[in-house]
Amino acid sequence: MKEVFRPRTFSELWQLRRQHENAALYAGGTDLLVQMRAAKINPQTLICLERLAEIGRIEEFNDEIAIGAGVSQHHLLENPTILKYFPVLCQALQALGSPHIRNMATIGGNIMTASPAGDTLPPLYILQAELELRSQKTQRRLPLADFINGPGQTGISPGEILSRIFIPKEPVFAGHYFEKIGLRQALSIAVVSIAALYNISTERKITAIRLAWGSLGPTIVTLPEVETFLIGKTLNPATLNAAATLVEQQVKPISDIRAGADYRRRVAGQLLLRLDQPANYRQTSA
């Protein structure tokens, strides 16, 4: 019979992991239990992290916010600190799954699943999130972008868990934009998604911009050349169309059951044109 453990503290967790080296870890279960049902995996021991208080907090520090990996997506969405500093993340969370999925699923789970369609990943990439990984004896911190290696593949070491996600408060961006193109308005998986952070001057010159796309490759796609191209240019449809063409030239998406590569490529570029909509830009920064 399968066993299920629900540690409340790190020390309980470390002990369980020593006793059950092959145990599968989960928090919300919205991914792992689906995989178990599909018989893709068949772990005999499960460790559920939902009661692990040490990864369930949101903390504000001077220059960064720390989000516990076990914080549910719903709680993040309700959190005023997150909304204040990282609207782009909230926009992504709003588009994720369904209300029930957001109640159960966690931010750590979204990272560990490491799906190129993971909705929180494009915002976390451009917010330059760093991950804290802990094991009984070790603790390390590394950029998210260095952690995710491919679909379902991360740099986690045996015995480690993802404990916290750190996001720097600065630099501050007035423009926050996330959009997911899915096959319907809820319960959808990204066909393409885009996350953008940007600042413009009073003359509408782009002074800073960071961009990331989901579902365009094995991991989140960033295009420094496109960002470089945009810096210093006036934010208008002509600039964005030129950038869109650059995007289309650079990305190499695949075709799958949801959409063809051509569509993904085209929309990845086209979505840049949304940045011209004033509603996406806050006049006063956070």
């Binding site: 369904s98 096959l183 319907r184 308005q185 319960l187 959808s188 998986i189 059951i257």
Partner: peptide
């Protein structure tokens, strides 16, 4: 997830 029927938002 792959066969799409409308949700309340659609």
């Amino acid at each position: 997830a792959t066969y799409i029927i409308p949700s309340a938002l659609d």
